[in-house]
Amino acid sequence: SEIVVAMYDFQATEAHDLRLERGQEYIILEKNDLHWWRARDKYGSEGYIPSNYVTGKK
């Protein structure tokens, strides 16, 4: 599975969105859409994140 790191904070506005915290790692579950990826955080929460807010883990 692909691990990404959040470059920016993202506040979830929709129920299906996942909040991003800058510097935290997330697991990508689905990339069915170019701009919104389904991800899981370290607490096990899942939701959609803006793909341009994250970068591949170095």
Rank of each mutant, 00 (worst) to 15 (best):
V4I: 03
S51Q: 06
Y8A: 09
D33V: 04
T55F: 09
F10T: 04
I28N: 00
G47P: 00
S45A: 14
Y26V: 03
R38M: 11
K31D: 05
A12I: 07
V54I: 06
Y53F: 12
E46Q: 06
Y43M: 08
V54S: 02
I49S: 01
W37C: 05
S51P: 06
K31Q: 07
G56F: 14
S51Y: 07
E21S: 06
Y53V: 05
I49M: 02
S1K: 12
M7P: 01
L18Q: 01
A12V: 08
G47R: 02
K31I: 05
Q11G: 09
N32I: 13
D9Q: 04
L20K: 00
A6S: 05
E14A: 13
D17S: 14
D17I: 15
F10C: 08
I28Q: 00
W37F: 05
R38L: 15
S45L: 14
V4G: 04
S51F: 06
G23T: 04
K31F: 05
F10A: 02
L29H: 00
I27D: 03
F10R: 12
K42Y: 07
T55P: 02
Q11D: 13
H35S: 09
T55K: 12
E21W: 07
R19A: 13
K42M: 12
Y43R: 07
Y26N: 01
L29V: 08
H35T: 11
V5R: 06
N32M: 12
Y43G: 06
I27S: 06
S1T: 13
Q24R: 05
D9H: 07
L29R: 02
T13F: 09
A15T: 11
L18A: 01
D33N: 13
I49F: 06
K57Q: 10
E14W: 11
A39L: 04
Q24L: 08
D17N: 15
Y48C: 13
H35D: 10
E14N: 15
R22C: 10
Q24C: 10
F10V: 05
D33C: 12
E14S: 14
A6T: 01
G56M: 12
K58S: 15
L29D: 00
D9K: 05
R38W: 15
S1D: 13
Y53C: 12
S51E: 04
Y26R: 00
H35M: 12
K57A: 10
Q24E: 14
H16Q: 12
S1I: 15
I27Y: 10
K57R: 10
K42I: 09
R22K: 14
L29F: 04
L29A: 01
R22V: 12
Q24V: 06
P50I: 04
W36H: 06
Y53P: 01
E46C: 06
R38F: 15
E25V: 08
E14M: 13
K58E: 14
E30F: 07
Y53K: 07
M7E: 06
L18G: 03
E30W: 08
Y48R: 13
G47T: 04
A6E: 00
W37H: 03
K42S: 08
V54D: 02
E30N: 10
N32P: 14
D17C: 15
W37E: 01
Y26H: 00
N32C: 15
K31S: 08
T13Y: 10
A39R: 00
E46F: 04
S45D: 13
I3H: 07
I49H: 01
E46D: 04
K57G: 09
K31N: 07
E25W: 11
G47S: 01
A6Q: 02
A6G: 03
A15E: 14
W36P: 01
L20S: 03
G23P: 00
V54W: 03
K57F: 11
E46N: 03
Y26L: 03
R22E: 09
T55G: 06
V54H: 02
K58F: 14
E14I: 08
Q11T: 13
A15Q: 11
T55A: 10
W36L: 07
E21Q: 10
K58L: 15
K58C: 15
F10S: 03
N32V: 12
E30R: 04
K57L: 14
G47W: 03
V4M: 11
R19V: 10
I49P: 01
E25D: 08
A6K: 00
M7W: 06
L18C: 07
D17G: 15
H35C: 15
N52D: 12
H35Q: 11
K42H: 06
F10H: 07
D17V: 15
L20R: 01
E21R: 07
G47F: 05
Y43E: 09
T13D: 08
R38D: 01
D33W: 07
G44K: 04
I27W: 11
M7R: 09
R19H: 11
A15G: 10
H16V: 08
R22T: 10
A12N: 07
K58R: 11
S51A: 13
D33P: 02
E46V: 10
D33E: 08
N52W: 13
W36Y: 09
A39I: 04
S45P: 01
P50H: 05
E25T: 10
A12Q: 08
I28R: 00
A6P: 00
G56P: 15
H16D: 12
F10D: 00
Q11H: 14
L20C: 03
E21P: 01
Q24P: 00
G23V: 03
A39Q: 01
K42D: 03
T13G: 08
M7Y: 05
W36I: 08
W37P: 00
E46Y: 03
V4S: 02
P50V: 03
E2H: 11
H35P: 05
E2M: 12
S1E: 14
E30H: 08
V4F: 08
L18H: 02
D41W: 02
L34D: 15
L34E: 14
K58P: 14
D9S: 10
V5G: 01
I3Q: 04
R19D: 14
T13K: 13
S1C: 15
E2T: 09
H16S: 13
I27R: 06
V4C: 10
A12D: 06
G47D: 01
D17P: 08
W36N: 06
Y48D: 02
E25A: 08
N32R: 12
E21L: 07
N52F: 10
S1W: 15
N52C: 15
S45N: 15
M7F: 06
Y43P: 00
Q24S: 10
M7N: 07
D33S: 11
R19E: 10
N52I: 09
K42P: 07
A12P: 15
E30Q: 09
T55N: 07
H35W: 11
H35A: 09
R22W: 08
H35R: 10
R22Y: 09
R40G: 02
P50K: 05
Y43I: 05
S51C: 12
S45C: 14
E21I: 13
S51T: 08
H16R: 13
Y8H: 09
R22N: 05
S1R: 13
I28C: 04
W37Q: 00
A15W: 12
D9M: 04
L20V: 04
D41K: 02
I3G: 03
V4N: 01
G44N: 06
I49R: 01
G23E: 06
D41E: 00
R22A: 13
H35G: 12
A6D: 01
T13Q: 12
D9N: 10
N32H: 12
G47N: 00
P50S: 02
K57I: 14
Y8I: 08
G44A: 04
I28P: 00
N52H: 13
R38E: 03
N52Q: 13
R40H: 04
V5H: 04
K57C: 13
S45K: 15
A39K: 00
Y26K: 00
D17Y: 15
K58H: 14
R22Q: 11
Y26C: 01
P50L: 05
Y48Q: 07
E30C: 10
E21N: 06
V5K: 05
L18P: 00
W36R: 11
E25M: 10
H35Y: 13
N52Y: 09
N32S: 14
L18Y: 02
A15P: 15
L34W: 09
I3W: 10
F10Y: 15
D33Y: 10
R38Y: 15
D9P: 05
R19L: 07
E46W: 03
L34V: 13
W36Q: 07
I27Q: 09
I28M: 01
L18D: 00
S51R: 08
I27V: 13
S45V: 13
K58N: 14
